[in-house]
Simulated assay, not measured.
Amino acid sequence: MNHIQVVVEDGIGVLELSRPAVGNAIDLASARELSSAARSLVADPEVRVVLVEAAGDHFCVGGDVRAMAEEPPSWCSEVATTVHEAVLALHEADRVVVAAVQGAAAGAGFSLVLLADLVVATPATRFIPAWSRIGLTPDGGASWLLPRAVGSQRTAAMLIGGKVLEGTEALDWGLVTELVDNDPRPRARALAASVAQGGWRAAGATRRMARTAWDIGLPGRLVEEASAVGTARAGNGPLLEAWLPSRRHVATAGEATKPGTSLRAPFAGTVTVHVSVGDEVTAGSTLATVEAMKLDAPLTAPRDGTIDAVRVADGERAEGGEVVVVLR
């Protein structure tokens, strides 16, 4: 039925909710597709990071209420059980999960957001614990995930009191990591790409340990951390070696290079892209390539202009070639 779209590209496993006509509401068919998609992505060795996004104006309005009213109570349990297969797959994955959330994230859609490590939303995005409004209890793991994210009292305010959060308050509560003014999907995809191109195995191990922090005592976790850091060192040697002083590019004040010039990372300095008003620059233009980190620095907020020069100022460090866009 194609209620869920799955694409794997450049190490990013995209799971897209694709029932926009009904706000990506979850019925039994879409729950089954969601379960299959999530389990296949986290099992795919080509997937370095999982990106959850949705077509249309809303991320997910939760369960399909019309179908709930028409089907027997056992139908709700079957849908929840099937969705929970996806929840477990994403929660236990050794991959970072990124989510782009627009419009409404309600009910089970809200639960999906809680499974993400990096969440990009807008100030107008609404996080709605819809269960109590229709006399239901939470599903999708919300009663377990939400207290760990915001604490018991705030959980009660949402799950019992029905408190709805909009973007800014969700950011304050720690449910969102970043807000953008418009469509959150491009920014979420850029974050996913940065994870996929860096030390993604170490990042995945870190997210797994963080998500199970309440399930293990400190002595056991210290043993696990000691083992994990050795594994990460064995797998990410080039990234570590790139930070050695002998490999570091130290810029002089006012040093300039042409757009597209390769910069060896890490380097001391910030990168500023000077753009002349009146010429054309397209979104995603590569301004500088950081060779050792295998990262690109795209122009994320394009305006009319020509890339005049990339200037590296002496002083502050730019992690992995961060780009500061300056319009003039």
Rank of each mutant, 00 (worst) to 15 (best):
N2S: 15
V8E: 05
D10N: 13
L17Q: 09
P20F: 05
G23L: 05
N24P: 08
A29F: 01
A31S: 13
S35N: 08
S36Q: 13
A37D: 09
R39D: 06
A43Y: 00
D44C: 07
D44H: 03
P45A: 08
D57H: 04
V65T: 14
E70A: 15
P72L: 07
S74W: 06
E78N: 12
V79K: 03
V79C: 04
V101A: 02
A105V: 00
G107E: 00
T125A: 15
A130F: 07
R133G: 11
D139R: 03
A142Y: 01
W144S: 09
L146S: 07
P147F: 08
T155M: 03
E169C: 02
E169I: 11
D172I: 03
W173H: 06
R189S: 14
G198A: 12
G198V: 02
A210N: 06
T212R: 15
W214E: 12
I216T: 13
R221G: 06
R221I: 05
A226I: 03
G230N: 09
A232H: 03
A234W: 03
N236D: 14
P238Q: 07
L240E: 15
T252C: 04
A253P: 05
T257E: 10
K258H: 09
L263C: 12
H274I: 12
T282D: 11
L287M: 14
A292G: 02
L295T: 09
P298R: 12
P298E: 00
D304C: 10
A318T: 13
